[in-house]
Design a protein around this nucleic acid. Structure first.
Lengths: 352, 352
DNA sequence: TTGAAAGCGCTACCAC
DNA sequence: GTGGTAGCGCTTTCAA
């Protein structure tokens, strides 16, 4: 408990005035305060005035959680966004897009990063359900989300983004990763590349697997043998990707003439390796995910761009449709990626 | 209301089973359910077992808001992060750092972007206070935060980040922007530059003003006249910055030989302009804020780097100290920036 | 060990 | 117009 300071009554930290305190100070009933606070017009101006003064004097702020409880309101005005890592531009862009949709509905967003850890996902879903969020947009870290089934049956609304749900029927908005990988690989093949390396993140990540499948399908379709030595996965940081790329680009006849990088973090590492080895203009590079400075590199970075804003917008729209009562069967929306040519991907294979 | 599906009772969307439902199904009293749910050991194994089964059958999830309400718990386990734009790498990095601190304490983070709009700030503070967040970390959009005084007196805990509070006594963790600008400008001056342009964001933003003051102080200190034509502010996007830079770098004798860009968004625009004009190796560029790809540009981008992770960590630590009862006077921590040389800032002035 | 009653801050319903 | 009473989902007494 604190001492009064500067003549103002100071409540213990965290304790705020209640409606009853306001009613007592204004000399009216609790219900009258409620009416004034909620903007009902059936209050005599003089009483309303007294209440307003008491509200100001006590810095009274209505407790929305209590209000929601009593109202039995099905809505808390909060949605949860469970993303991979909000400091990564992909998750950050997604979050911003979700926030814009929430904002338009006067809702707020509870955010968390899962870091590809299934356990964190379980923990956070449980936490947010306990807080009675109106819905969840989630980029799952787990391989199987059947643990959600009971909650979904009990009314939990969840929309998957970037990755498909497994083990539970739910809406999703994803990018056509396989198609994007096919586009990138075909592009390199069309320039004459035959030794194309694929460097990517954890194989436990669906998008990573899909991109690999696309890469392999394109090679097969072109009649090019798959060389397992040209595929490296499990790369979680630029440093790891750089090291892997340097290992591959050893100058031997077996070295790849082009690299397809499966994720933004990997692309950075590969670009660094090419720079270090002086091969930026000799070895072609196409990355998945765009960057703010990609066009300013030399050569400019060729990428498969995902429309992150659209991904977030459509996921949020789907979630709000559910919140507003849409009970149609789960829907899987797929957004097409786009190949953006800037130079690094248009390098022809080196003559030997 | 939905029809029962698959034999399971389906509640109307949003309506979840309550403790009473569980008690009824298990054939015990409400209080016994409460005991089991809260892990109290004073329940007969057989009863506990019955309760657990009912919990599972109904997908019961304790309502944390109701629990908090009754407990009179001063803590909701939620902190608010009011940043500028979570899709910008600066805010995104900050958010991630805050989240890490919250996570260590099993708290979650409510996030919102203010977009430099004071009105949004007011709206969101009001919203989050109504939701009884335990505290707020905020990067203010408003010029004056005296509107917060009453809430702060009533126990609201708020820590300012990146920008100092005005009109209210509160903790802050900021970067020494003026010092960073002095470092950047001195660096350019030491290479012989005398016509150094300064391009920046809105002058309503404190960091923007501070950086300008540092720029001007360094020039004055070096005995270099300030040329108002070399200062352009109000640049909010890369496009605006690019256009402004192209206007300045018109090839005349009055054109600057170096540019100091006051923010990441501006730096992108200036770098584009230099590229477009073929001046990347002729005109020096130092930017405020670092980028993931900055080292890969040609020349590498010289920047004033802010330790975003530390900024967030210290802000969160300060906030939690307050939440845990620290009542010492407000504290203003200032974090030193660092000049990172990569090439673009080490270009000597062109001979005329 | 178990449960009935009261009440957290607020609003719905019904009297006055 | 105004105010009492009941009760949202839960926990805290305190009896049994």
């Amino acid at each position: 408990m604190s001492e009064p300071v500067g003549g103002l009554p100071v409540a213990p930290v965290g304790d705020r005035a209640t409606m009853r305190d306001v009613a007592a100070l204004a000399g009216v009933s609790l219900k009258t305060v409620s009416r004034v606070v909620n903007g009902e017009t059936t209050v005599a101006p003089e009483l309303a005035e007294r209440v307003q003064r008491a509200v100001a004097r006590l810095a009274y702020r209505p407790n929305r959680t209590a209000s929601n409880l009593r109202r039995g309101s099905a809505r808390t005005g909060v949605i949860g966004a469970l993303l991979q890592d909000v400091s990564n531009s992909f998750s950050a862009g997604l979050l911003r897009s979700l926030e814009d949709q929430a904002r338009a509905r006067r809702d707020v967003v509870l955010t968390a990063s899962l870091d590809e850890e299934a356990e964190r996902e379980h923990l956070l879903v449980s936490d947010l359900v306990g807080r009675r969020v109106d819905g969840l947009v989630m980029m799952p870290a787990s391989v199987d989300q059947s643990y959600l089934a009971a909650d979904v049956a009990a009314g939990l609304r969840v929309v998957f983004v970037d990755r498909q749900p497994r083990g539970v029927a739910a809406d999703s908005v994803t990018v056509d990763n396989r198609r994007g990988a096919v586009m990138a690989t075909n592009h390199l093949l069309s320039l004459g590349h035959r030794r194309i390396a694929f460097l990517a993140d954890l194989t436990s990540i669906e998008t990573s697997r899909e991109r690999r499948l696309g890469y392999e399908a394109a090679l097969r379709e072109a009649g090019v043998d798959l060389d397992p030595d040209l595929v490296v996965t499990g790369l979680r940081t630029p440093d790891a990707a750089e090291e892997a790329a340097i290992g591959l680009l050893d100058g031997s006849a077996h070295a790849p003439t082009a690299v397809f990088a499966g994720r933004n973090v990997v692309t950075i590492g590969v670009a660094r390796a090419l720079r270090t080895l002086g091969l930026s203009h000799q070895v072609a590079l196409v990355g998945f995910d765009d960057f703010p400075l990609a066009e300013l590199l030399v050569p400019g970075l060729t990428v498969v761009r995902q429309d992150v804003a659209r991904l977030g917008r459509e996921a949020a729209e789907q979630l709000y449709a559910r919140i507003e009562g849409d009970t149609s069967p789960p829907r899987a929306r797929v957004i097409p990626p786009r190949l953006v040519l800037r130079g690094s991907g248009e390098i022809a294979p080196r003559r030997r």
